[in-house]
Structures are given as C-alpha cells and as structure tokens.
Design a protein around this nucleic acid. Structure first.
Lengths: 236, 236
DNA sequence: CGTTCAATTGATCAGCGTCAAACTAGGTGG
DNA sequence: CCACCTAGTTTGACGCTGATCAATTGAACG
C-alpha cells in the first residue's frame, strides 16, 4: 500500500501524531482489501497476525461457546479492531466477520509491535486507544449487570441518537437479530421490547426509530450518573 | 516514600523494566497508607488523582446505578488498579473500597502520566497491562453473556483452583454476597447453586471448597475453547 | 451474652428464553 | 415483471432460570 493511498487513516488517533517514517513503515507492509458480506476474518483462539482498520462497511466482533454465540461489538469506519491481541501477540478472544461488503486495511501485527518499540508517539496513542476500549467495555459490563434488557434497549437508542446528526431519528445499521445479541437478549424479546417502547415516546418503522419524547427515554435510562455512558464502545 | 521501602513493588510488571530514575521519581511522590476495612477509596464519576497499588489486603471495584450495585472486580496484592482512568486523566468508571485492612501505595496520576512521556519502557509496560485488563474484561463479558449463573460459579471455582497451590482445595477470600454480585447473581441463588455443586463433585464447608471430581466440573465449564479463560481478571 | 449482619431455606413471582407458527421483505430465476 | 424462495421478524403460548420477599439459622464481635 502506498502511504498516501488513504489519507483519512493518517488522521486516526492511532496514527495522527506518529512520525512520518513510522507511518510509511506501517503502510509499506499493509494490505488493502475488500471483502464480501459475511466473510470470517478472525476465528477466536487463533493467533493474531494483523491489526485491522475498517475503511468502509462494517465488522461484527463475536464469540461462540458450547453452541451459544454472542455479538460483542460492531466496528464501523474509521476504527481499528483487535488491537489488544495484536500488541500482545496473543490469541484472539473474539471472532470477526464482515457485516456487508467491507474495505479493510490489514497491518501486520509484527510491524505494529516493531513501530511500538521505536515511536513514542505511537506508544502513547496505543495507550489511549486501549484505555478507551477498556473503559467502553467497563460501561458495557455495567450495563449488562445492572440494567434490564428493556433498559438496555432504551440506553442503546439514546446512545445512537447522541452519535447521529438527527434530533430524533435513529436508523439501525445492523440486523435486529444482531442487535438483540449485542444487547444480550433474544430476537423475540427485542421485538417485544420495541413494541413496549411505543408507550415511551418512540415510533418505529422497520429499522427507523423516531424518538418523540427524549425525556421519557431518559427517565428509563437515567444516564449521567455514570460518566462516559455515551462514548465509544469497545473493540480492542 | 523511599524507593527502597517496598522492594517487591519494583518487581511488578509495570515497573520491572523502567529506569531507576523513573522509579525513584514515582516513589518520591508516592504515599504508603493503611486503611481499615470497608473504606471508600474511589467514588465513580470523580476524577482520578492516583494510581493505586494493593500491597496487602484487598480492594473491591464496584459500580452503582439507580439503587442497584454490582461488584466488578476484586484486586489482591500485588496489583494495580484504576490504571485506565489514571493515564487518561478521566473520571473513574468504578468505585473502590477496601475489603479488609489494606495497605496501599498511591501514586499521583500526574506523576504517572509524566513518566509515561519520558520512559519508553514504562509506556510498554502500561500497554501490556492495559491490554491484559481489556482481555480479562472480554472474557468476563463472554462469561456473563454465554454462561448460566451455575456455569459461571463452576468456572469461577476452576479458575481459583488453577491459581491456588492446592490440588483440590479452594478457599473463598471474599464474602459470598460479594462473590454473588461479581458472578451476576443474588446471594440466595448462589447459596442454592453451591448446593447443586455437590452433585458435581464439590464438597463445601463454609468458605472451603473441596473439588473431588475436577473432570465433572470441567464438563460443566467446557474451558479451553476460549484461550485465556484462566488468566487474570480485569482491574484497570 | 446480646447485637448485628451474613448465609440459608422456603415460597412465590417475573423476566426472559424456548418452541412453534404466521408474516414480511429482499433477492433470484423463469 | 412477477412468482417464488429463503431468511429475518413478529406474534402467541409456555416453561425455566433466577429475582424477590420473608423467616430462620449461623457466625463474628464488642
């Protein structure tokens, strides 16, 4: 890959402040590839050879055990994923698959670790990124342990609303079954919970959600007690 | 604090490879303090002024929301906690309190961030530590989302057994109500689950657990599919 | 030796998962 | 362009896991 091929990734917080030579070194070994939907990228348990960057499309991080399976995170452009395993040169704890047609940059993990040794700015960026991933997961865990599935759904909508440009419209970019799994509930239960939302100022139409009474939702979610609730979700 | 006051903390992975001057700088500003049981050290939402090291005793990391509360992690000697918030200079996402009489080292977070800028070895140690914390939490989340409460208990016992010296004895070092909260269940349910364990080769006597049939437990837990299951728990 | 709080036990109930069936939408081939 | 097929979604009925409530037992500590 040429270093100037995707100028926008130079602006990622991971690379923004690193030396030009470090960036060039990383790009020299990088692959830019486009994958069809539903392609397995990573199988949990396998060692981690690349750090991934989502340029376009979307990637689901999930885990399977004993016939069960759960969506851990959804990674959208421009974000990296599987950073923790890459820097530790360890087995991946999550599997990854594309949600739709997706363009990815693959940085060989050895190169990442190499640059880590020479470029202090990169080290600091990795520290910040890992800390954010960690804190995102902490918030996630608190959610699962302290809120009901219905409250988690309301919380999710408020989070997506805060991220969006709109005042009151949220559009799901993933299938409901995957959202259900991410929220730790069954598709059936999600379907019923969405119905229940209508009594709390949310009109739905397929993947469109119109929040007509934000305050009502906030009453369910009671955010603000916990700082960081509406920040990023984890994907390290 | 004198740099040579607690030689064992020099051996912590966070400090093992850092420069002597960095370590001295950190120690110069450090406080060594002993706290009684059940003392609140950190209130979530407040900014993080220190990085903590547990020298003796134990600390519970927990979170509260809307009248509910949950134990997120238990930190034992010699470990650090609240590293992520300290390096990010951000609000803590978890509260902390001592479980019993506990000796702690408090490193001013500004000093930590200062050393981060000058000492590459320290940066790398922080990266490793954060990555481990993150991966511990990933495992935790997978546990909560994919295993039943009974399976989580069995898994917990096997984990503690792997950490202990004994072939078959596990001794709880926390109250059962806290274990229940950590595992995401009620004390009543934990009590009943412990009873159920007797049918799977576990004899109990108060806080003592004797695992007489490890294979039976393993059948419940089915570990090994997910690498890293028996490593550390998160506490960043 | 009494006070206090954790742990246990029993009874009940609710949230949510499971199973099954009907419905809908998006994509494909005739 | 439409019929069809497949897969996701919705709806209903039912059952189980685990929470709640209440009462008792047990253990730690002054």
């Amino acid at each position: 890959m040429r270093p100037d091929e995707h100028p926008e990734i130079r602006q990622l917080s991971l690379f923004k402040n690193i030396a030009e030579t470090s960036f060039a070194y990383l790009m020299r070994g990088a692959y830019l590839q486009t994958f069809p939907p539903k392609v397995d990228l990573i199988l949990e348990g396998e060692n981690c050879d690349f750090l991934y960057i989502v340029v376009e499309g979307g990637v689901e991080l999930f885990s399977s055990w004993n016939g069960r399976s759960t969506t851990m995170s959804v990674v959208r452009p421009l974000s990296t994923f599987i950073l923790a395993a890459a820097v530790k040169d360890a087995a991946c704890l999550m599997s990854a698959r594309t949600l739709k047609k997706t363009r990815l940059i693959l940085l060989p993990a050895v190169d990442v670790r190499r640059v880590l040794e020479t470029d202090v700015a990169f080290s600091h960026a990795v520290i910040t990124e890992l800390a954010e991933c960690y804190r995102g997961l902490v918030t996630n865990t608190k959610n699962i342990k302290m809120r009901s599935s219905f409250e988690r759904l309301a919380h999710y909508l408020l989070r997506r609303l805060a991220e969006s440009n709109s005042e009151c419209i949220v559009t799901l970019e993933i299938e409901k079954r995957q959202l259900a799994s991410y929220l730790g509930m069954t598709p059936e239960n999600l379907s019923r919970s969405i119905k229940k939302l209508e009594a709390h100022g949310v009109k739905t139409n397929g993947t469109q959600f119109e929040i007509t009474d934000v305050d009502d939702l906030r009453k369910l979610v009671k955010p603000g007690h916990v700082i960081g609730e509406f920040k990023s979700s984890a994907q390290g």
